[in-house]
Write a protein that binds this DNA or RNA. Structure first.
Length: 551
DNA sequence: CTAGGGTTAG
């Protein structure tokens, strides 16, 4: 018997009573399943070593799996090294040329690592090397394509005779949808001989992605037999287009039609709950998932953590997180963000440390979450240290979001000029999020001069919303510049900017209550406003206390 | 014996 093997590189022995060929096949199978079970990159090197020692280092099937797993675990460079190495020495093992599989795996890897351009380039090189594409590599490269490349490949597809290949057509539709080319997507859809529910599902996604939610609904209505996936796609489309209540309505309808939701449906609904603050419904989905024996996969688990954090129940989020046996990078990212959101900065940093100790590789999202924890906790030094070392230590190149976090860090502790200088020395142009953070820091610390400068930049960038004007007007007001404050309000009215009222929702006893700025129609408005006043008093008091403690 | 309709995090 093949002995049990631990993924961490424990004892690994193979039966020796097989003939060489059977032994090779048996080992290959073992390695493949071993690799597939890996959860983080630290588990790979010992297995890879064993693969090489047993002469499977050039086995295309095994290397295929290695490339795939390394890319999904975030080590695309390791995967690419492997790929280049094997291309040079590949021995033809199987009845057909396995090269194209390796290219496919590598292109997929580039796509999942946000390096689509490299994926597309690799495909061109493959064509230059006269390797015959198959429908698999074509579907993969389509994911890596920009619009122009996509059209080019569509031409090739027709020449090579893959024009009737179903998966290629579906992928073409998807790509056209992603680039907003609804006409092209629709054309491919209409030309499909079997416009079944699968193609319709893809088309619904295209519409949703382009914001044509009405057309999506119309198509959805016409689909004869709707399966779980089709319902889920439609619900997801509504969620992405912020039609949360319609999404929930459709979810109820789906159950009435006796189509059973699966884990994907659960994730979509949880995402809607997160957005609506619908804690009760979220809890219901949680128990539903458990009662329906829907696999509590990482997707569902992570969505639950997200839902609980965003709906205010951080303790339940922690419980779900602790209960997950196979936490992945996303689980850590989600809980760290949640903790940061709830001001539990120490906890957030602790989880970060734990994740690194367990061999997980922080990615850009992790570092945004960590930096947020630092800025919410006022840990300026730690935050700056993290930012300055992220590239060297974690191999994550700082992106605009990370720069934004630093601006937030500096701004919150009142080092406003420094934050502004930081923006000016960045290698990229600031976005409105970052400027907005600095502007609100100017408001909090009462810096009129810089606030004006930042607001001006924001307004020029044309990404400003009513919030910019409101903040600027408040900055003027709180420094007694009433005339300027009123002028801003006036120019807002003139330019019609104040057309987007702030809106928030909360769910109480399964009912979603919506509040608009200045809206006084809620039946319990007296009690609500009274409580709000109390909260403001408490917060003011806290603010003053913090200020005193700082002195 | 390598694989593709849907899903998560700031």
């Amino acid at each position: 018997m093949i002995s049990s093997i631990t993924a961490s590189g424990g004892p690994l022995t193979f039966r020796r009573d097989l003939d060489p060929n059977a032994l090779r096949l048996s080992r290959r199978k073992t390695f493949i399943s071993l690799l597939r079970n890996c959860k983080n990159i630290a588990q790979i090197p010992p297995i890879h070593a064993k693969i090489i020692r047993t002469f499977h280092g050039q086995d295309a099937f095994v290397v295929f799996e290695l490339i795939r797993i390394c890319s999904t675990l975030g080590s695309i460079d390791y995967a690419y090294d492997l790929f280049r190495y094997i291309l040079q020495r590949l021995i033809l093992i199987t009845y057909h040329n396995p090269n194209v599989y390796l290219y496919t795996a590598m292109i997929d890897g580039f796509v999942t690592s946000n390096r689509s351009a490299d994926g597309a380039a690799l495909y061109s090189r493959m064509i230059d090397d006269s390797i015959m594409p198959d429908n698999y590599v074509i579907t993969s490269v389509l994911r890596a394509c920009d619009l122009e490349e996509c059209r080019e490949i569509q031409g090739q597809v027709l020449k090579l005779g893959f024009g009737s290949c179903r998966s290629v057509r579906l992928k073409l539709m998807e790509v056209y949808g992603r680039y907003g080319e609804l006409v092209d997507a629709k054309k491919v859809f209409d030309e499909m001989p079997e416009r079944d529910e699968v193609a319709a599902t893809v088309m619904i996604n295209c519409y949703s992605e382009c914001g044509s939610i009405e057309e999506a609904l119309e198509l959805f209505k016409d689909v004869k037999v709707k399966d779980t996936v089709c319902w889920t796609a439609m619900i997801d489309g509504l969620v992405r287009n912020k039609e949360m209540n319609k999404a929930l309505e459709l979810f109820r309808e789906m159950q009435m039609e006796n189509v059973s939701p699966n884990e994907f449906t659960a994730v979509c609904i949880l995402s809607a709950c997160s957005d609506l603050g619908a804690l009760e419904l979220g809890r219901w989905v949680h128990s539903f998932v458990e009662s329906q024996m829907i696999t509590l996969s990482n997707f569902v688990g992570n969505a639950l953590i997200n839902m609980y954090s965003r709906c205010g129940d951080i303790n339940e989020a922690k419980r779900v997180f602790k209960g997950m046996v196979d936490k992945d990078v996303v689980s850590y990212n989600t809980i760290i963000s949640g903790l940061a959101m709830h001001g539990e900065s120490f906890e957030a940093i602790k989880e970060f440390r734990d994740m690194v100790n367990r061999g997980f590789r922080p990615n850009q999202v992790t570092l945004v979450a960590l930096l947020n924890a630092c800025s919410h906790g006022g840990f300026l030094d730690i935050g700056l240290e993290v930012f300055n070392s992220m590239e060297r230590v974690f191999d994550v190149e700082p992106q605009i979001e990370h720069y934004g976090c630093v601006v937030d860090l500096l701004g919150r502790v009142g080092r406003l000029e420094e934050a502004y200088r930081f923006i000016e020395n960045m290698p990229m142009e600031p976005d409105h999020i970052m400027l907005g953070a600095l502007l609100s820091a100017c408001k909090i610390h009462g810096n009129v001069e810089l606030g004006e400068k930042v607001a001006k930049r924001l307004i020029e960038s044309e990404d400003s919303d009513s919030g910019t004007y409101v903040l600027l007007s408040n900055i003027y007001a709180s420094s007694g510049k009433w005339k300027e404050s009123n002028e801003i309000r006036g120019s807002m009215r003139d330019s019609g900017i104040d057309k987007e009222p702030g809106c928030s929702t909360i769910e109480v006893n399964n009912q979603i209550h919506e509040f608009l700025v200045g809206d006084t129609t809620h039946p319990e408005k007296e009690a609500i406003y009274q409580r709000l006043q109390e909260l403001v008093r408490v917060l003011r008091f806290k603010d003053v206390m913090l200020y005193i403690n700082d002195m």
